[in-house]
């Protein structure tokens, strides 16, 4: 990403997003813990290990490209969701963030 004259452009080289699943202990299923950026799968697993198991929270890690996930509606009974776009983390709409002065 570069910033020129106050205008920003997002490079195509930005690393893709990966979803991370961790098996906390033997006998339990992998569950989603969050996401991270990495240039490829090998590095993604590596980064996931450093980031999401710093305190020995897992015995096994899966990483999945976020773009490869197809989602259903969040809840079969609750038929309310954005009809457009079926990628979990890549909503088509980008909402510009206003200048804000807020405490932490």
């Amino acid at each position: 990403m570069t910033v020129e004259n106050g205008q920003s452009t997002v490079d195509s080289q930005d690393w893709p997003l990966w979803e991370v699943f961790v098996r906390p202990r033997r006998g339990l299923a992998h569950s989603h813990v969050g996401s991270l950026h990495a240039s490829d799968a090998e590095l993604a697993v590596r980064n996931a290990r450093d980031l999401y198991t710093r305190r020995q929270e897992g015995v096994s890690i899966w990483v999945v490209p976020a773009a490869a996930i197809t989602a259903s509606s969040p809840d079969e009974k609750d038929a309310f969701f954005e009809p457009a776009g079926d990628k979990v983390y890549r909503h088509p709409t980008f909402y510009p963030v206003p200048e804000g002065v807020e405490h932490l």
Binding site: L36, L43, R46, R54
Partner: peptide, 11 residues
């Protein structure tokens, strides 16, 4: 170079 690498180098 990237936040993920910051964590890795600290490890």
């Amino acid at each position: 170079p990237e936040l993920e690498e910051d964590v890795a180098l600290a490890n």
